[in-house]
């Protein structure tokens, strides 16, 4: 599934300063019954976002009109739990292109990279600064520059660099995915498989 190229993203951000946000919260299991990859954004954070009667919970940040943007800033250990890629789809489908956290769960990070959501891991101090900047001014812009691997708070100029392996970086800059790469080395894979015992 190819996705949009990612280069420089300048956007306001939505703050969600909770720790251990797990994928069951991002997209509850009862919404995993689809056989197509459509409409998951509607159920992003479903149980935090809506009451039982489907009216929005005013207190939840996605229902607060003063916060919006393509960047979601989460707390530590974001995306823990189930391997469901649907969590990353829901985030993408809702309109986020980047998730910022001081720590990501492994599978979630991988899933994001595979579908075109950039996970940006920052230091706990910088994460704190971003939250403060957003709370001071919800219109503050965050600049995520993938080529240079930097994240900047536009208003203050505070900047930090982030890690991403060069292979994944190339993929995201070009909107390629792993299947494109693997398809091009099928012969090598078949030779390898022929040499296996089992």
């Amino acid at each position: 599934m190819a996705y949009d190229k990612f280069n420089v993203l300048t956007s306001t951000a939505v703050p969600l300063p909770l720790e251990n946000v797990d994928t069951d919260q991002i997209i509850p299991a009862r919404f995993l019954k689809a056989t197509k990859r459509e409409g998951f954004g509607d159920n992003l954070f479903r149980d935090w976002r809506y009451n039982d009667d489907n009216t929005p919970k005013e207190s939840f940040v996605l229902n607060n009109p003063i916060y919006s943007g393509k960047i979601l800033v989460g707390g530590k250990n974001f995306g823990s739990g189930s391997s469901r890629e649907h969590a990353a789809w829901a985030i993408y489908d809702y309109g986020f292109r980047c998730v910022v956290s001081s720590f990501f769960a492994d599978i979630f990070r991988n899933n994001c990279l595979n579908i075109g959501v950039l996970p940006v891991q920052v230091s706990p101090e910088f994460s704190e600064q971003i939250f403060n900047a957003i709370y001071d001014d919800p219109n503050t812009e965050i600049v995520v520059d993938l080529q240079n691997q930097t994240i900047t708070i536009a208003a203050t100029g505070a900047q930090e660099s982030f890690d991403i392996n060069s292979y994944k970086k190339e993929n995201m800059l070009n909107g390629f995915d792993d299947i494109d790469y693997l398809q091009n080395m099928k012969g090598e894979i078949e030779t390898f498989a022929n040499g296996l015992l089992l």
Binding site: M1, S83, R84, N114, I115, D177, D178, I179
Partner: peptide, 11 residues
């Protein structure tokens, strides 16, 4: 994740 399921199926 599901993208990887697709990778394993195809390669």
């Amino acid at each position: 994740g599901t993208s990887e399921v697709e990778m394993v199926l195809s390669t």
